[in-house]
Each structure stands twice: as structure tokens, then as C-alpha cells.
Amino acid sequence: MKTTLKYALRLALLLLAVSFVVFALVSASPIDPVQANVGQAAYVTMSEEKRAQLAEYWGAGVPFWERYLNWLSAFVQGDMGTSLRFNAPVAEVIATRAVNSLALMALAWLISGVLGFVMGVVAAVFRGGLIDRLIKGYCFVLASTPTFWLGLLFLMVFAVGLGWFPVGFSVPLGKAAADVTLLDAAHHIILPALTLSVVGVANIALHTREKTIDVLESDYVRFARARGEDTWRILRRHGLRNLALPALTLQFASISEIFGGSVLVEQVFSYPGLGNAAVTAGLGGDVALLAGIAVFSAAIVFAGNLTANILYGVVDPRMRRRRGVAEGSLPEGEGRCAAEGGGTR
């Protein structure tokens, strides 16, 4: 109960800070929302009254504090405001966009997680060998590749050159929304998801490789070997168990990275997701939408980290049983081991 309250408070503070920063940044931004949204040519030919009217619509003259507090009091009451750019409630815009984005990210997240884990373990088992070098080389190259550049490259090769995939968007152009099949959606999601996951793999594989090497060089693996277990059996019996914790942390921490990457990838593939909307909102001075998206994504990343924390307790008996004793105190078993080990050297 106490823990739940602590997490809730932490989330509230996080969202408050995120929204504040968004508002502060937008008010400090040199973009004139009227100019940005009406377009240069229309703005020049526009009458003075019309400009004033638009400026009022965009709330250009309202001071920063007033604007923020207005938004905040509405947000607390459950109203995320209206997107001026999309001319629709922010909640609605986010809801439609989030479906696309979350599908894209979930796919990329799963592919990179599973592929990265397998590659990391394989590289660690054959460390120093050819397979290890190939996997490491692949990871180093990809870890230093900008996501948007890789997206462009994929577009050039697979969409333009080979024509296997569409060049952009989440559904075929000129097709009525009711006619769009799941297959269409899948066809459109593959390339952006692939771009995201291919980049994400590098990070996860390299981390998993290090962790696996740690496990393979640990005392308990040495002892298991001394008892006649071979490498693959050891990996199955002890490796997966001990790799689960770092893998979970890594996987849930990578949500934020995937989120960041999706902004760029959605831009490159004109994929109508949250990232795309965030860019539009930022460039158009649509502060309500931008704040809405920022708060939404912060909540998702927070939920990811929280899930990792909860799963920790489920997977690790040291934490599970410690909770029963006393929160925050040193587990007695660990202290005992440390005291014992200390006496030997």
C-alpha cells in the first residue's frame, strides 16, 4: 500500500515536471504559431484584423504562467485540451495516433528484444570466435548508425529499388478507411518496425553478451562445470534464470529508446503515429497537443520501468523473500555470506 502511494506520487511529480518543461520550451520558442500554421504567403496577404484574430485563437499574447495554469487545472479535471492544429480534442488525436505508434513500437520492441537476446547469448558462448566477431561487428556498425539514415536507406532499397514495401503511411493511399485490411496495415508497418528493431538489436545484444559472459565466468557456473554439466545445459539451467533480471531491465528501459527512435522513423516513413504528431505540434506551436503527447509518453515509459521493478520481485527470490522481512533492510543472508567470504582472503 505504502509502495503504491509512493509510485503514484512519483508519477504525478514526473508528469508535472514534463508538462512544465513542455510549456516553458514552447513559450521560449521563436516560432510564431500564426505564421507557422497559416503559411508564409497567406500570412503576408492577410489583413491586420485577421492576424489579430488568429493570434488570439492561438493564444499568442497570453502569458506563460496563465497558459500553463489554465492547461493544468483542465488537465487535472480530465480535460487534455483541444489541439488547435488538428482542430480536435487532444485525447482523441492521441488515441487515434497511439494505436499506430504502439503497434509499431510493440513490434519493434519484441523483435529487437528476442533477436538481441539470442544474438547476445550466442556471441557470449562463442566469445572470441568468428560468430562473436560477426555479431559484435554488426552491433558496433548499427549502434553507430543514425535511425533516420537507416530508415532512408531501407526506403531506397526495399521500397523504391525493390518495390517490396510501400514508401510511407500506415494504410494504402486513396483507399477508404473501411476497406483497409489487416494485411494492408501489416504491409505498411514492416519497414518502419524493421528499421526500429534493427537499431534496437545492437544495444540489447551487446548488453546481453556482457551479462552472459559475466554469468559464464561466475563461480556457480564454474562449479556446475566441475559437476559435469556442459555449456548448453548450464545456460538452460542457470543462464536463463540469471540473465532474466538484466534482460528485463534492459528490455523495459529500451521502451524510452524505442519511443525516441519512433519519432524519427515515423517522420521518415510519414507514418501517422504519435512521434509524427509530436513533430507537427512542436513546429506548429500546438502546445496542448505537445504537452498531451509528452505526458502520455512519459506515463508509458514510467509504466515500463514500473513493470520491470515489479517483475524483479517476481523473478528474484532474494527480493521476494526480503519483502516479507523488512523493507529496505539488508537481507540477512547476503550479510552473512559477505562476512564469511571476507574472512578468507
Binding site: 563461480d219 556457480y220 539451467r237 555470506c337
Partner: peptide, 8 residues
């Protein structure tokens, strides 16, 4: 020592 046993 017990460090040679799988902690999990």
C-alpha cells in the same frame, strides 16, 4: 562458499 551456488 555458497557463491558457487546459483543464487536464483
Amino acid at each position: 562458499s555458497v557463491a558457487h551456488l546459483d543464487p536464483l
